[in-house]
Structures are given as structure tokens and as C-alpha cells.
Amino acid sequence: MLTLLCLGGVGIAVLLYDEETKIDRAEPDQVTSSFLRTYLVNRSDDEAALYICASGAKLEEIAALRAENINREAQFGTSVSVVWESLTVAPATGGVTSVSVDLVITGSKGGVQTSSRTEPWSFQLIDQDGWRVCGATKEP
């Protein structure tokens, strides 16, 4: 009897863990935010891949931004952080949508802000068993 109770407890724990760690791709703005966090803040290609479309993603511009941030940190001994605001989702048409967002890029050194700029970006998403980022472009 005790063994059955333990096995039942393990099963429930696994189900709860699975539900808590499930990747949520239900909303385009949430996927865009998660992608930005994993790609620009955590700088993890493996984590970001969970939010990118299966093939044909055009992410060269956002990759260049991340490389620029890393280079600035190395060159100037600063810390570069990125936050985002004003996520606006366009109406979806045929499983395709876009999310406009302002990226706020801040440099700091020794706890003192040394620079800050805001860039408008557009992210293209496709519904592939949940929304996925398939493109990122800096707006003029």
C-alpha cells in the first residue's frame, strides 16, 4: 500500500513539474517577450530556439544587435542591458502576425548609467503549433 502511495505521489509531482515548465506559445506578445529574454538577456541560443520557427528564420539583425552589445561590453568594460516596452500585436492573418516593440538598450559602468537608447523593432511570428518568432527587423 505504501509503495502505491509513493508511486502515486511521484506521478503527481512529475505532472505538476511538467505543467510548471511547459513552454507557453499561446500569445504572440508573450512569445516575443520570452524570445527577447532568452536571446538578449540570457544570451542562450538553446533557450531561444524554443521560440524560433522551424526553418527560414531571418534573425540576422537581432543577432547583430546582440553581437554589438557583447563587443561593447568587452571593448569598454561596461555592462549592456536590454529591456522592452510597448509590445503591440498586429491582427493575425492566416497564422501570421507581427509584434512591434521598443527595445531600451542601456550601458552602465560601475553602477552608473553611461548611455541609453531606444530602438523600435518589429518581430514576425508564425503559428506553428503555437506562435514562433521567424523574423526580427529594426524599424527606421
Rank of each mutant, 00 (worst) to 15 (best):
L50P: 01
S33T: 14
R43D: 05
I23F: 06
E27S: 06
K58G: 13
A54M: 05
C53G: 09
S44C: 03
A49P: 05
E68W: 02
R66D: 07
L36G: 08
A63N: 15
D46L: 15
P28N: 11
G56E: 03
E68A: 01
E60M: 09
L50M: 12
V31E: 01
Y39H: 08
I70P: 03
E47L: 04
D24C: 00
D24S: 00
N42V: 13
V41Y: 09
T38Y: 06
I52P: 00
N69V: 09
E60L: 09
V31L: 04
R66S: 03
R43C: 05
D29T: 15
T32W: 08
C53I: 10
A57M: 09
D29Q: 15
A48I: 07
L36H: 11
R72Y: 00
R25M: 03
N42Q: 14
Y51H: 01
A48E: 03
I23E: 09
V31G: 00
S55C: 04
E47K: 08
Y39N: 01
S44D: 12
E47A: 00
R72E: 03
D29G: 15
E47P: 01
A74L: 15
N42W: 05
N69S: 05
A64L: 10
S33E: 13
E60C: 05
A64N: 10
D45H: 01
I52R: 06
A64Q: 06
T32L: 11
I23G: 03
P28W: 02
C53F: 05
R66W: 06
C53K: 04
S34Q: 03
G56V: 10
A64W: 04
A63G: 12
E73Q: 03
A49W: 03
Y51A: 02
N71C: 05
R72F: 00
Q30V: 12
A48V: 08
P28L: 07
R37I: 11
D24V: 01
L50T: 08
R25N: 08
D29W: 13
D46I: 15
L65R: 00
A49M: 14
D29R: 15
A54L: 07
E27F: 02
A74E: 15
E68I: 06
E68P: 02
F35P: 04
S34M: 07
L65Q: 02
Q30T: 11
R25Y: 01
L65V: 05
E47I: 02
V31I: 07
I52W: 02
E73G: 00
E60P: 10
A67Y: 08
R25K: 14
D24R: 00
E27N: 11
K58M: 13
L59D: 13
S44W: 05
Y51M: 04
S44I: 01
R66I: 12
V41G: 06
D29V: 15
L50K: 05
A74T: 12
A67V: 12
K58V: 13
A26M: 04
F35A: 02
F35Y: 10
Y39C: 02
A67M: 08
V41M: 10
S33L: 14
E73N: 00
R66H: 05
